[in-house]
Simulated scan of single mutants.
Amino acid sequence: MALASRKASAVKIRVLGSAAGGGFPQWNCNCFNCDGVRHGTINAVSRTQSSIAVSDDGVDWVLINASPDILVQIRANPALQPARLVRDSGIAAVLLMDAQIDHVTGLLMLRERGSPLPLYASAQVLADLAHALPITRVLGHYCGVDAHPLAIDGAALTIAPLANTTFLAVPLLSKAPPYSPHRDDPHPGDNIGLMLQDSASGARVFYAPGLGQVTEAVEAAMRQADVLLVDGTCWSDDEMITLGLSKKTARMMGHLAQSGPDGMIALLDRMPARRKILIHINNSNPILREDSPQRAELAAHGIEVAFDGMDISV
């Protein structure tokens, strides 16, 4: 990705990783998809664990979630390493959607910063990362963390140095991570969706890599968006059970499957957005195979599948 001059422009989103936790192929999985992509016997490409980067000038970026694959993702995206100084990064800040392992452990890889890492997350997420999984305490012995509690009351914010992008948290109904002391006692802020808005044009992107239940507030936010970048984890609710990979349904794991009368496809069909894109694709999902019937069904509904390196401009 070429570096750009500092000037007002459209919000830019780079998909750093498009897979669910474990990536694709998952290290210990020999399902049809994982075995096939390893051996080149299916029409599919590898993917790292889900994360996006947001910029409005192509120079400074806000990282949305920090996956365990962050170092691979930085190497694959030169704009995140602009080399203006002997030690440098294009990552100006990190915003977390939740405290899940596959969204936060990459923070540890940023420990060599020369200044405290600006970190935006809900009070619930910051508490989990200070105590239950004490990543912020560990980072205190390295670069340090400049924590910013993220409001979930409908107030938008800007994150310096991005001057032309606003960020608005939309609370989701879902569980905290398994390690959280309130795993079975959900709190507002455990998980959020995120509305990104270009302050000049007013164009909006709604991002929710984990979306298990669609409340009235969430559906209203989705209807306002020009681009939807949302949960594509599983094709069917019983997918993981059928393949012998888990005893949990997609909904039990906090994800709305694509198929079925109440699935993601039916939801997206109701939305006026000009682009509808699925992200956070689990290794079991047949939509990873570009020539699968399920992939063709998505295309028939005007739904895209995110891939690592995908660019989205608003």
Rank of each mutant, 00 (worst) to 15 (best):
S51P: 12
A44N: 13
N28A: 11
G23L: 03
R38C: 06
I42A: 01
N43G: 08
F24H: 05
G22D: 00
G21R: 09
T48H: 14
T48C: 08
N30S: 12
F32C: 09
G36A: 07
T48V: 09
S18K: 08
G40Y: 09
V45M: 12
N28C: 07
D35F: 07
G21Q: 10
T41R: 09
H39R: 14
A19F: 00
P25I: 01
S50Q: 14
N28F: 09
D35N: 11
G22Q: 00
F24M: 08
A20Q: 06
S18Y: 08
N33D: 08
T41A: 06
Q49D: 04
N33H: 14
G21H: 10
N30W: 09
D35K: 12
C29G: 03
G23R: 03
N33G: 14
V45L: 12
S50K: 15
D35V: 04
G21W: 04
G22K: 00
G22F: 00
F32P: 12
S46W: 11
T48G: 06
A19K: 02
C34F: 02
H39A: 12
D35C: 05
N43C: 10
R47E: 10
R47V: 07
R38D: 05
C34Q: 04
C34L: 05
F24Y: 13
G23C: 06
C29N: 05
N33V: 11
R47L: 11
G40V: 07
G40E: 08
I42E: 00
S46M: 11
N43I: 06
V45S: 15
G36E: 01
W27F: 11
S50L: 08
T48N: 13
F24Q: 01
N43F: 10
Q26N: 14
I42M: 01
V37G: 02
W27E: 13
S50T: 15
C31L: 04
R47D: 05
G36N: 04
S18E: 06
N30H: 11
Q49P: 09
A19V: 02
R38A: 08
V45Y: 13
C34P: 06
T41Q: 07
I42N: 00
A44M: 09
S50E: 08
F32S: 13
R38S: 08
N33Y: 12
T41D: 04
N28Q: 10
F32M: 10
F32N: 13
N33P: 10
S51W: 06
C29Q: 03
G21I: 03
F24E: 01
P25Q: 04
A19N: 02
